[in-house]
Write a protein that binds this DNA or RNA. Sequence first.
RNA 1: GACCCGGUAGCUCAGCUGGUAGAGCAGCGGACUUUUAAUCCGCAGGUCGUGGGUUCGAUGCCCACCCGGGUCACCA
Length: 501
Amino acid sequence: MSGRSDGPSPVEQARRDKLEALRSGGVTPFAYRFVRTHTAAEAVAVSRDGADAPEVALAGRVVGLRSHGKATFAHLADASGRIQLYFRSDHLGHAAYALVPLLDLGDHLGVRGRLFRTRTGEVTVRVGGFELLAKALRPLPLGKSAPRPDGTVAHYSELADPEVRYRQRYADLAVHPERRAVFERRAAITRAIRRFLDDRGFLEVETPILQPQYGGASARPFVTRYHALDADFYLRIADELYLKRLIVGGLERVYEIGKDFRNEGMDRLHNPEFTMLECYQAYADYTDIMELCEALVRRVVREVTGGDVVLARGRPVDLGPPWRRVGYVELLAERSGMDVGRSDRAALAAALRERGLEADASQSRGRLIDQLFGLTVEPHLEGPTLVLDYPIELSPLAKPKRGAPALAERFELYIGGYELANAFSELNDPDDQRARFAAQAALGAAGDDRAQAMDEDYVRALEYGMPPTGGLGLGVDRLTMLVTGERSIRDVVLFPALRPE
RNA sequence: GACCCGGUAGCUCAGCUGGUAGAGCAGCGGACUUUUAAUCCGCAGGUCGUGGGUUCGAUGCCCACCCGGGUCACCA
């Protein structure tokens, strides 16, 4: 990677030489503002042939340069697209044209001129005047592209190294308009989520990220030091417990879209900080949330893509109704042959070892079951599937299932082989909650570092009375992957976590 | 964390069984007033990820480390 050495590279030196030449020619190479009349796309749209072709003022980055002696063609790109520029010595005047060779790919330029069409029909600005707005002292990896005979477009010398793309996202975005489009879509997704929930009477709230005690999920936290209080604080792993406190407080429908932080590994599906939607609805149970979840996902996908079909792992997945609803235990029996209701820890560990996993019977039953599920079931959940009724020991914040107390009223949404959402009928019996926390604390004492801890204040809140409530957590990054067809979470997070350079 | 693959010019890549590196694009100089991967002529550009080792000689082989990607394991 460049940029760590002391001096400028020869290419950079050439640009600095031009910078000095411009300065000594009286040009200010870093301007203060430029008033434009059109974007590139607007200019192309309004262009007409003939004498009344409109005069435009455009600003953008130089992304192509073709010098022909006393004439030069260039392409200027802004957020809307690109447009061709035509500099002519006799049209611009000798003095102004003399500055054209001092331009480089990547420079920001403001241009004024009348639109015309070239012989090949491309809308082009006949530049009557231009201003350098910002000199690019470092060469951008601007690739080239050309149409192939089969109609597709061939790209040459594109920025391809994923490390550089993530570390220097500014360069990636500057050079790849299609990368910018992914993040525009991401914003459209969160807008659509907000619109959907606002329409249903949900209140958007913000709860602490910096917490004296973490909870609401089974995960290891990041720990930080709060000097004023001389105490360790945690970056939240979930919004859950705070949002349900608000339900106790009488905010009947609340949601939050925010960052959670989990001190776990990173891969295609996991970034240590990620964006989660959580919403809670009083007087609802998990069947209401199933309806809400389906409607939410389908509406977001439809608003952003215009259809019901998304790409998961490169394959199309139809999100049209109905979505499959199937029991967790049933699925596990179907795929693994194990009846988890009857299997003890030794049998579960043996089943895991059969499948090549290191497992031993000292792990908690819940954890063994969950591993077996992850191994045998998850990868097969291609189409949208609501997996229902999890073992209760995996779900310390969910109500027992009516008529089947070994299970919890909980579902997870799977699409494309990965988990997208998690929901339950929220446990609102404070004594039961206290007992569940105590059981978790015992697992923690036995060495499970993801076990949840007793939260006395949360139990106190429940003691004031929480109405029956349905809650949902949905991974916004993963939803974005689905909607954009991206295969890695790093391609939908602007600045994914990386090792320090 | 384990395993596999990779790191060579600004970018994309080549480099045979070890003989101190090549191409295209970008850059620089020249020609060119409707080109569009512009073209043509010429030039320059590299601690071959880092540090050791083997060897007369290492980009290539061996070891360690750094960084990334993929797969698996755990988590959303």
